[in-house]
Amino acid sequence: MAKTSVWSDNRFWQRSAGWITGFAAVLLIWLTFDTAGQIAMGTDEDLKNGVTKRVPGPTVINYKITYEMSDKRGHEVPYIGGNDGKGGSLFQEKQKFFGRDDYSEEEAAALLHLGKLGSQTKNCMNCHTLLGNGAYYAPDLTKAWLDPAWQDDGTMQAMTGKSTKEEAMAEFLQHPSTYPTHARMMPDLGITAEEAKGLVAFLKHMSSIDTNGFPRNFGKIRGAVNGK
C-alpha cells in the first residue's frame, strides 16, 4: 500500500465539493436579497417624490418615457417625465395614456396586472423576446413602447387609423393579421379591447425598467426606420 495523499482522498474532495457548493449558494442567496430590494416595484409616492427605481411603480404610465444616453452611466437609460440634464429623470412631464394622465395607483396596478397576465396567457414569449428572453421569431418587446414605428411620425398609427400610439398598439393587438407589416404575421390571439389596454400598459411599464443599457443604440438609425 503506497502512502495516501490528501489529493487522492475521496473524503477530502467530497467535503470540498460540499463547502464550495454551500459557499456559492450562500453568496447567491445573499445577492438575491440585495437584488430583490433593488428590483422591487416602486410606488406612486416614489414617482411623485422623484425617487428613481430600477422598476418604477405602475403609475409610470401617466408619464412620458424616453430612452436616452446617460453620460454618467455610459449607456442608454430610461428617463421618466423628462431628463434633468444630470443623468436623472425629472418626473415632471406627463403623457396621456388612452386620454388620461391621472391613473390612480390602484387603476394603474390593475391595468399592469391584466397586461402581465395577458403577456403570459397569450404566450408572447414564444415568439417575442421580453427583456431579451424568449423566442426570436418576432421583435424584442423590451422598449416596444418607444419604437419609432409607433410614434407620431411612424407607420403604424397611419396604418391602424389611430392618432395615438397606445390606441394604435391596442388596435394592432386585437386584429394583428388585419395589419400585416411583413410576410411573417402575428396571429389573432383573441385579445379583447380591455386586455389590449392592459398589454399596452404592460409594454409602457416595461420600457421604463432600467435594463443597464439593453438594447443598445435603440432606434439610432431613424432614417431606415421611416423608410427614408
Binding site: A138, T181, H182, P215, R216, N217, A224
Partner: peptide
C-alpha cells in the same frame, strides 16, 4: 442579427425585420 438588427439598428421593430 447582431450586425444588422442590433449594432446598427438597435433592436427596433424595423431593425429586427431588416435583419430577418
Amino acid at each position: 442579427q447582431v450586425l444588422v438588427s442590433r449594432a446598427q439598428m438597435g433592436a427596433t421593430w424595423a431593425g429586427y425585420f431588416d435583419g430577418q
